[in-house]
Amino acid sequence: MSELLNDILFLPEAASTFAERIDTLHHFVVGTTMVMSTAVGLAALFFFFRYRRRLPAQATEYVVPTLKTEFLFVSVPLVFFLAWFGIGFRDFTWVTTPPKDAMDVYVMGKQWMWKFSYPEGPNGVNVLHVPANRPVRLLITSRDVLHSFYVPAFRIKMDALPGRYTQIWFEATKPGTYQVLCTEYCGLSHSKMLAEVVVLPQEEYENWIQEQRRGRLQDRQDALADNSLVPPVARMVEQGQVLAGTQGCLKCHSVDGSQHIGPTFLGMYDRVEQLEDGQSIRVDEAYITQSMMDPGAHLVAGYQNVMPTYQGKLQGPETAAIVEYIKSLRTPNVREGASEGPAYDAIQ
């Protein structure tokens, strides 16, 4: 029955728990609308025919409604509308209040793509993998203008606003691939801002994410480890962490993303920093090293030039260790608990 109705109404496949709730209400609303308007329409047609004009200047009776009739006119629609609203608002509250055990995914809209990231990695562009039958909370933001994250099959939609997060959640019921569309006009290629949600069965999802995380680690190690003779990166990182404490780096730079005297180390590596002089720079090994030796050379916007130089205070390997330590704090672009907040990109 409901399948048939969905076909008549051209509704896409319902693939989330919310979709089922929505469709029930949808059918109820469409049903009552049809019944009521057919009744009104038939009454009108009957009147048009029954009371057709017989004389050109026919006189008619003076008919006014009784108070009871008018009361009926007001109360019947009001009861129906409020009933719809009651159900609708209950569902709306439901879909905007994620359950406690929901898995978080960060979603960032950008002209004209969607970026997805999981708190512990990995990142992805335009493809979101989620497990089936598990609540997923989307924390949505934007880097430039307004976007809106819409998955027709899940019946969910939420605007992406620059400068803050919005949230919505869903629980996919069927494995499969579903389309994501942007529904808030966002410029030239608005209609090309498509993405996919891939719903995987729980085990497959676990495998996938393991693989992704391993792959990332592998990539990084491949890139860094030139041969087996140099100390492993992990050891350098440890060394760097100790050094950062003893050399006083952590007095001004936090590692948890909180605001302090200097920029946080968390996620610093590979980040594009806006500089005091209006230019921007990508934080790489060279920049980190330079900042330790000549802190005022490229000051990040919003920070005072108060850092002392470490020229001569650090040995070469020590510097490298600190650099490695900072690199190890590299995080996905959207993170939980990051101090940077949603970034707000340039519009080209």
Binding site: Q274, S280, R335, Y344, A346
Partner: peptide, 20 residues
């Protein structure tokens, strides 16, 4: 969902021209 320490002011500037 707004991360701790991130107020509206933490945003990157909107870059229209050079004066980001």
């Amino acid at each position: 969902a707004t991360p701790p320490g991130s107020t509206y002011s933490d945003l990157q500037a909107l870059d229209i021209g050079a004066d980001a």
